[in-house]
């Protein structure tokens, strides 16, 4: 990715800056200057808004064949997350056993490295998510045993 392409969205990625529409009282992420629900009236009525960074897992999947640049994580958890303010976002959930992530779990944002242009290129940082509560590993052990019996 070119330097300006990443740079212009730094605050969106670093600090979860999205938009709040004063007409429909709804939140949007990533930042947009136009709210399709409100049509052209929304232009000029979209304010920057910093999301709290807390949310809930809508659906999670364990990725075994990693996306380019994510090879060192495999297997890892990708999820659609609903932020507490409403909008949804696709993100990796890190620092957890990926198979333990389930719909409805609470997550919070963390600052992580997203990737790099190349070994000599610019580094990309931004937001990922971790589980707010540590998952009960005893439960997952029971699951594993059940699976083996099946």
């Amino acid at each position: 990715m070119s330097v300006p392409r990443f740079w212009r969205e730094l605050d969106t990625r670093y600090n979860l800056i999205g938009s709040y529409c004063k007409i429909t009282n709804t939140y949007h992420y990533p930042r947009r200057s136009f709210n399709p629900e409100a049509g052209r009236d929304s232009i000029g009525s979209m304010e920057d808004y910093q999301f709290k960074g807390t949310g809930t897992v809508v659906t999670a999947t364990v990725v075994h064949q990693a996306q380019t640049g994510y090879e060192m994580f495999g297997p890892y958890c990708m999820a659609i997350i609903e932020l507490d303010e409403g909008p949804r976002i696709t993100s990796q959930i890190v620092d957890c056993e990926p198979n333990n992530v389930k719909s409805g779990m609470k997550v919070k944002s963390v600052f992580r490295k997203l990737g790099e242009d190349s070994e000599s290129g610019i580094l990309h940082y931004g937001t990922k998510f971790i589980l707010s509560e540590k998952t009960n590993t005893e439960d997952s052990n029971e699951d594993t045993i059940e699976n083996i019996e099946l």
């Binding site: 060192m72 994580f73 890190v94 600052f111 992580r112 490295k113």
Partner: peptide
């Protein structure tokens, strides 16, 4: 550190 952690991410988390 995880594959997505480095001095910068640790500095940001601690500072936040």
């Amino acid at each position: 550190p995880g594959p997505d952690e480095d001095v910068i991410t640790i500095a940001v988390e601690a500072t936040r």
